[in-house]
Design a protein around this nucleic acid. Structure first.
Lengths: 154, 154
DNA sequence: CTCATTTGGTTGAACTCTCAACGATGACAC
DNA sequence: GTGTCATCGTTGAGAGTTCAACCAAATGAG
């Protein structure tokens, strides 16, 4: 028997709007960064996380955990960022399994160059489109969803 | 000179919450579908679009356009779906450049099998987490963002 | 009719992500 | 110390996306 709680017409429409908006936004931001700064959004996030860390340095696991990224993904990404010279690895001496990712000066410069364009895109496509009340609502909604995600699955 | 309109503390926090929530949601839905129904979310969307079309048939370009997907992506995706037997191509006789994508019975069955799990995930992770007012707000916010995306870039 | 342009769709290479398997180190019990 | 187990991170293969290049059919101008 079917116990699925299907979506109502109205819920479906809201859901479709939400999905389309999110896909449009991520596409837009990803293309903007790739075009203007030759980096995908996920790499931008890694650089940001490192830039905010003490000594611009983080353990791989902290970097992965902080961004909800898998270890594997991060390992590949850092390998790539190391090739480009934006990050380099340093081994951890207190725990020889671990390694650190360190943001290089070139990496910091690349991030500084990319930030204005990205922030402008975010402001134009999100904050400029919403009333102050809607911005606050979006914050509340996001936090509520995050609570739901942390709780059970994921 | 720097004319970038940077984000305030509060805006940054809202923005980070939103990004984290969206990444968490898409990860969750994608994994759920992949695990339980062996298809990524984007393929699910293609099957849904076809299932709602007359004769379960759409031109490739309509399918791409309707879902904001690139022609190339769709072409690869349909090739994959054809391998699995969920979709097949039919050439268009009035315009010999074009081709149709048709949802097969197997494809419809796969979609029917996948839908309950996906809808349940959506309900649990979104609608169950929000008050009715927040759901309505999310709809308004999504529509506002969509207007902003269609207008200028993208 | 002919040639240039546009449109519909495909292809291949490069890139990123995921998953499962692995090597290596640390932690802990006995 | 030794064996077991958990943790840190890497690796390789498979899959999906993107971009640029491409072919073929339609369109439109002269």
């Amino acid at each position: 028997m079917d116990t699925t709680r299907w979506l109502s017409e109205g819920e479906q429409e809201i859901w479709r709007s939400f999905v389309t908006a999110v896909e449009g936004l991520t596409d837009y931001f990803d293309r903007q960064l790739q075009r203007d700064s030759a980096m995908p959004y996920t790499y931008y996030e890694i650089l940001v996380a490192l830039s905010e860390a003490p000594d611009r340095t983080l353990r791989m696991s902290q970097l992965a955990g902080a961004r909800g990224s898998s270890r594997s993904r991060l390992s590949h990404a850092v390998a790539r960022l190391e090739e480009v010279g934006w990050v380099h690895r340093r081994t951890c001496h207190t725990d020889k399994r671990g390694s650190f990712a360190v943001l290089t000066d070139a990496g910091f410069a690349a991030l500084a160059a990319a930030a204005p364009g990205h922030v402008t895109a975010v402001r134009e496509k999100i904050f400029d489109q919403l009333t102050p009340e809607q911005v606050a609502q979006l914050g509340e909604i996001s936090r509520a969803i995050l609570r739901g995600l942390c709780g059970s699955g994921e």
